[in-house]
Write a protein that binds this DNA or RNA. Structure first.
Lengths: 207, 207
DNA sequence: AATTGTGAATTGATTCACAGCT
DNA sequence: AGCTGTGAATCAATTCACAATT
């Protein structure tokens, strides 16, 4: 359910828009006013033509001969990504990885707030700055706070059962760190981050 | 530098092979002897034709009418991925995320061992099971132990400087969690895991 | 009857090349 | 002169459809 899908922006383009956004943020912080597709593409790790094509899917933002206005383009991308308000997120599974993500904080700057963690043994996490509740309290919390996004960092064997709870309580998007494929209804989005597979893939190229 | 690139297996195929491998491992543990492309594809989250095409890039492993022998296919994939010995890996940047990865342990099962961490302030990590050294000791360590792979989890601003050290000391592959594009020579592989971008991407689909 | 292996067809993404502004 | 915007061309990945095999 993409908002404003006048011409359905491709999935990969959306990914790259997030990256452009971050690069533009940095430029804006440094007081840069204008940037060429060449320079911005380099910062984002893509080719200039690709950047221009990506932007072309939803408008025209540059001036020929000059480049793009940093603030203006940033605002336009933000609008497309629909990322104005702070988005609350819950995290399920406060093991090693989950605990780190709770403390990580890198998300807040990007507009996300992990508002609570849930674990089978919440009492082990009294000291964390973000509250950790028992998994029994998950359904109530989701409904009460109108949460739409979840991060999943439980063992593979436990993942699907929790996903079922999540989707039956209105979660629409899941960032999944559990090394297993989740079954979800078509309208729920899942992004998988599989650390072992990333490493394994790299190792293929190490002779 | 892919080993055995008789017909250069596409990058995305390599990714999926790692996933198939894990699914097959599970089947093998459960004593399953034979699996159809249909069943395996489902477990891996892809279409049966894609699985078959992927396997076709490097051989024939099934019997028509029957399916694939679990152990045999597993062995063949392992051979292609070249994943026999335990691969030593260093981790640079022992902040929240880095510290979690050190303790994570999920890699060992997949054939990787994080042998050491490096940080500007190593003394904060006396309690970790894996030793954490000062960053000054990084070059010596890399050469002495013949390390080929690194995980990078430092702030964006520090990333490129460390990458330069890594590549000038023979590192061939980097798993990068720092939210920035790294400049590396062509023969060095980088996989980026950008948690903020993953979340941001998901949030686009939350109406 | 079931299921693989694969050429052909299709779909999608990227890059080229250049016209059109400023 | 420089740089964007974009149709056309290319390249890559996926899916189809079916012959081949057990």
């Amino acid at each position: 359910m993409p908002p404003l899908d006048l011409q359905a922006i491709p999935r990969k383009t959306i990914y790259r828009l997030s990256i452009y956004q971050r690069c533009l943020q940095r430029l804006a912080e440094n007081g840069v006013e204008t940037v060429s597709s060449q320079a911005l593409a380099k910062a984002a790790g893509v080719k200039p033509t690709q950047l221009r094509k990506d932007l072309a899917t939803f408008g025209q933002f540059g001036t020929r001969g000059l480049g793009y206005p940093v603030e203006g383009l940033l605002a336009s991308i933000r609008e497309v990504l629909g990322h104005t308000r702070l988005q609350p997120v819950v995290l399920v599974g406060v093991g090693n990885l989950g605990a780190a993500l709770l403390r990580y904080g890198g998300f807040n700057k990007e507009g996300f707030e992990i508002v609570a963690g849930f674990d089978l043994f919440p009492e082990q996490h009294r000291t964390d700055p973000i509250p950790v509740y028992s998994q029994d309290e998950l359904p109530g919390f989701l409904l009460e706070h109108g949460i739409k996004m979840a991060i999943l960092a439980v063992p593979a064997a436990a993942a699907q059962a929790i996903v079922n709870v999540l989707v039956s309580h209105d979660i629409q998007a899941i960032l999944n760190f559990s090394p297993t494929i989740l079954e979800v209804p078509g309208e729920v989005m899942v992004n998988n981050v599989d650390l072992a597979v990333e490493l394994e893939n790299l190792s293929y190229f190490v002779r």
